[in-house]
Design a protein around this nucleic acid. Structure first.
Lengths: 339, 339
DNA sequence: TTGTAGGCGTTATCAT
DNA sequence: ATGATAACGCCTACAA
């Protein structure tokens, strides 16, 4: 088999010039209906597929988007990716999937790749703690539309989709407090570069503070957000001999691990320990007990990212915008009221 | 800010021809070290990113892969996608994420897009039942390397990574039988185009047959593989008044739903009903009880796909190969021996 | 309504 | 070791 068919082959077959073929493909300009018909027939017969690479070079637009997440096998990012792909497909864009593994270096490498690939836009879900500033700098220097999602660093001056993490954390804190809990622990997010507490941790601690409770560092453990990290963190807390009637966990995936570990050690959830998660991934309903959690509008995050991106592609000079999405407490079975 | 820097800008700045710049970028051919240094400096200073679109046009290779799955938010596909991305990145390829939603039409559309984008290869995980033959035809006519994974249609004449589904199903059947179960049900995979039973269902039924048990159609319910489908299917079975001490479920995601639904109706797992899943996704360990399941080597599927693909890209004329991956029973807590 | 031709940014061939 | 220059396949003025 020979190389792929080109616009020239189609033109020859239809007995017209390549310009005409191009015009019917992109149906721009009026074309003689009969000519158009011949061209379409030729396209059909030759199974012609216009070369988007050439088109991209000429049009200076690839109709592709880059999506950078830490790990698409994490259900949270998986759902976001799904939404991004959906919205992209709808608008005629393809999405290039990039996993950063929480590594700044890999993030930078991927950004260089996306720049070289001349994607029309980038959705960046940087891990808390990584040096977003530098990444943003790199991207905007290449003049590529960018949307940042779920970021914790303020004042980036670019389009962002934010979630009310602080409020979400606060809600979780108040909820536990209202249930009568006073002996509380926290399992947070850790990565090499993280400095200080995440917004949701801060919100949580503010709620406790208001009730006169300060979270001793001995009552805090960390993980990188995955199921096994949750198990390990719970084990660590227990190993330290920490007494607790309730624990707030950075995300549902770790919360699942926490519940598992607690149960494995003969503790009852919520009988002995109440657990609150964050995210509301699908599987937070699947555990026993089902997890009470602070929900993010996951799919919407992805959709909003793409919407913002497409609008910026359309209007590059627009002022940067921020979309703030709410959280919502979803009560299930993993918490109980203390008597 | 102006358009992106090109090789010409670099050449001018370094006082050399574009040919020389190209040569140092791709470091092919000996170059005067001092010249090379000047070029590299210019690249640095201008923050030059070679245009992969132009390069792709010229080289007739985009160093990109298309990955078609039904839904990347399904943990099984999410893990496969992760592995594909990993292996691709390692080899310098980007991956374009495509969700087919089990729709033949969307699959075809995406294939056309991937052809037009001139990807160097395609990994196709078609849903059981869709018309793979036609899709394969379409792709090979465009002369694009293709690997099919987890397919049920035999004799495609292309590279494939297969999993021993039939044996896996058989194993599940034998396991339940050996535990003393005789009153058994099955929750299978359904899609519009599916005809007949999936291989794992056939394997399962063969085991039952050998024990003299034929699965009445009233003891079978179907779902599309997601968590909620599992709940619904279990509800359906129960609604029909089916008596059972054990049920085999097409995948872990549905098995999670089945367990939830059973428990919601006051049934104990495995006390009243034993449940066997398939896949061994991470979360099959997270439920209570943890799910006993027939494991697929999920990440390995992705890696093998990419390996096969890259080798074919290298040697287009090679004979088509099949890689057959084994399944393995993972015993956890969702089954019990009948006394 | 249709055709001609230049250029998008590279790589690779052929000189020098 | 380096420099011109012709493609790669498409779109789009500009002409006709």
């Amino acid at each position: 088999m020979w190389a792929l068919t080109t616009i020239h082959d189609v033109a020859r077959r239809a007995g017209v010039s390549i310009a005409t073929v191009s015009r019917v493909i992109n149906n721009v300009q009026p074309i003689d209906p009969e000519t158009a018909q011949r061209v379409r027939a030729a396209i059909e017969e030759l199974d012609y597929h216009p070369n988007y690479v050439a088109r991209g070079l000429r049009r200076r637009s690839t109709r592709s988007l880059g999506l950078i997440v830490s790990d698409n096998s994490n259900p949270f990012f998986a759902e976001v990716a799904r939404a991004v792909e959906d919205a992209g497909y709808e608008a005629g864009y393809s999405v290039i999937l990039c996993n950063s593994d929480l590594s700044t270096e890999k993030q930078e490498r991927y950004i260089d790749v996306l720049i070289s690939r001349r994607v029309d836009g980038i959705v960046l879900m940087s891990a808390p703690g990584s040096d977003v500033k530098a990444l943003v700098e790199r991207i905007s220097h290449a003049d590529i539309p960018l949307v940042i999602a779920n970021n914790e660093v303020p004042d980036l001056g670019v389009d962002e989709v934010q979630v009310a993490f602080h409020e979400g954390g606060y809600t979780a804190g108040r909820y536990l407090l209202d249930l009568g809990h006073r002996s509380i622990a926290y399992i947070g997010f850790f990565s090499e570069q993280v400095r200080g507490h995440t917004a949701r941790a801060q919100g949580f601690m503010r709620a406790l503070s208001e009730a006169g409770i300060e979270l001793a560092s001995s009552r805090i453990a960390y993980g990188r957000g995955r199921y096994q990290d949750g198990r390990a963190a719970a084990a660590e807390l227990l190993g330290r001999g920490v007494q607790m009637t309730a624990v707030f966990v950075f995300d549902d995936l770790m919360a699942m691990g926490v519940i598992k570990e607690l149960q494995a050690r003969g503790l009852s959830v919520p009988g002995d320990v109440s657990v609150v998660g964050f995210d509301n991934i699908v599987y937070s309903e699947a555990t026993t007990p089902a997890i009470t959690t602070v929900a993010q509008p996951i799919a919407r995050i992805g959709h909003e990212c793409v919407r913002l991106l497409l609008e910026r592609i359309e209007h590059p000079e627009m002022e940067p915008r921020q979309v703030l999405l709410p959280t919502e407490l979803v009560e299930r079975e993993s918490c109980r009221r203390l008597d």
